[in-house]
Amino acid sequence: MKYFALLITLFFIGFNQQTSHLNGRYQYFIEEDGAYIQKDKITFKDSVFAFDNKYLPKGKISYGNVILLDNFINTDLIISIQKDQITEDTIPFLMHDKNSSSANYLDETVGKGRLVRIK
C-alpha cells in the first residue's frame, strides 16, 4: 500500500512541475522608434526554434540563467530572455550583436522586442 501511495505522489508531482523550456508558437515584435512592429511567427520546441518564413534559418536555444536564442534572424544576432519571463504570455527580449566592439557582446544591446504567445 505504501508503494501505491508513493506512486500516486510521484505522479502528481510530475504533473505539477512547470517546464523551463520555451514551447509553442509566438509572434515577435521589434521596437523601432518607440513603437512595436510585428514581424514573423516563431515555433519553439525545446532546444530549437523555426520561423514560419521558410527562408530564415532554424536556430538553437541555450538554457541557463539567461535564455539565449542563437541565429535569430542572421548568424550575428542573439536574443536574450530572462528565465523567469518564459511562463508569461508576453516575453520581453533584448537583441545583441556578436560582432560588437565590447569584450562581451551580451553587455551591449542593439535592440529590443517582445514575443507574444499565439493561443
Rank of each mutant, 00 (worst) to 15 (best):
M1L: 11
K2S: 08
K2V: 11
F4S: 11
A5F: 12
A5Q: 12
A5N: 10
A5D: 10
I8W: 15
I13T: 10
I13Y: 05
F15E: 07
F15Q: 15
F15M: 14
N16W: 14
N16Y: 13
N16L: 14
Q17N: 14
Q17V: 15
Q18E: 09
Q18I: 14
T19F: 02
S20N: 14
S20C: 15
H21D: 13
L22D: 07
G24L: 03
R25N: 15
Y26F: 14
Q27P: 04
F29K: 11
F29A: 04
E31D: 15
D33K: 12
G34P: 05
G34V: 03
Y36I: 07
Q38M: 11
Q38H: 07
Q38G: 05
K41V: 08
K41H: 14
I42K: 01
T43V: 02
F44D: 03
K45S: 15
F49E: 03
F49H: 02
F51P: 02
K54E: 01
K54F: 03
Y55F: 08
Y55V: 10
P57G: 10
K58C: 00
K60L: 01
K60E: 00
I61F: 00
S62C: 06
S62D: 08
S62P: 06
Y63P: 01
Y63G: 01
G64F: 07
N65A: 10
I67D: 01
L68N: 06
D70S: 02
N74G: 08
N74T: 00
L77G: 13
I79D: 06
S80V: 02
D84L: 05
D84P: 12
I86K: 03
D89F: 01
T90Q: 01
I91M: 07
I91S: 03
P92N: 11
L94V: 07
M95D: 01
M95C: 03
D97G: 13
D97H: 04
N99I: 04
S100W: 02
S101W: 07
S102V: 09
S102T: 04
A103F: 08
D107T: 15
E108H: 07
T109D: 12
T109G: 08
T109E: 13
V110L: 04
V110N: 12
G111Y: 09
K112L: 10
G113N: 06
L115R: 04
L115Y: 10
V116I: 10
R117G: 15
I118K: 07
I118R: 06
I118G: 02
